[in-house]
């Protein structure tokens, strides 16, 4: 299988995660909570995968996520691409083999993305205590869940690729 073919499988894997997250939120709505797992979808592309393909798939994921919410068209594509850029920037600043580093970078990435949402949408709700309560609840919950899941999710994808005959550890880091 070609590299691109393998990456497309990776994309499908993340797409699956995206739908699972949606399904999870379907049930979490019962408790008025929403999990934002956007950084989890992009972290592996940003940290481990080659540039062009991963950027394309990140933009595709952004398009899919953006189509399902009422934000202005393109917000998610641009946001996800920027998030991807953040992970690329992290490549040389964290140790990608260190679980804590990956977990922290992903959690910070999610935090940044949610801050962007606060800045771009809901500005007229800034005066509402309920809004900030809701935002902080979701922020806290999402970052905690992401912190817990980021490393296992990345490791799973790495192992999955390994089973497909693509050893990321053996590849030289991108230049």
């Amino acid at each position: 299988m070609s590299d691109n073919g393998r990456i497309s499988i990776l994309f499908l894997l993340n797409l699956l995660l995206y739908f699972l997250a949606g399904e999870l939120n379907f049930y979490l709505a019962h408790w008025a909570v929403h999990l934002h797992l956007d950084a989890l979808l992009i972290v592996f592309f940003g940290l481990y995968v080659s540039r062009t393909s991963s950027l394309l798939y990140t933009a595709l994921l952004g398009g899919l996520a953006g189509a399902m919410n009422p934000l202005a068209g393109g917000t998610y594509i641009i946001g996800y691409v920027c998030l991807w850029m953040y992970f690329v920037w992290c490549q040389r600043r964290i140790r990608r083999q260190n679980s804590i580093h990956v977990r922290a970078a992903t959690a910070v990435g999610q935090l940044l993305w949610m801050l962007v949402l606060v800045l771009f949408d809901g500005t007229y709700q800034w005066g509402s205590t309920a809004y900030w309560g809701r935002f902080l609840t979701e922020l806290l919950l999402s970052t905690v869940v992401i912190y817990l899941l980021a490393w296992p999710w990345c490791r799973f994808q790495k192992k999955f690729l390994y089973t497909l005959g693509w050893d990321l550890e053996a590849l030289p880091p991108p230049h």
Partner: peptide, 13 residues
């Protein structure tokens, strides 16, 4: 089929 209830939007599909 989908519930999307966040701090910024509240929608169902």
């Amino acid at each position: 089929v989908r519930r999307d209830l966040t701090a910024w939007w509240q929608q169902l599909v």
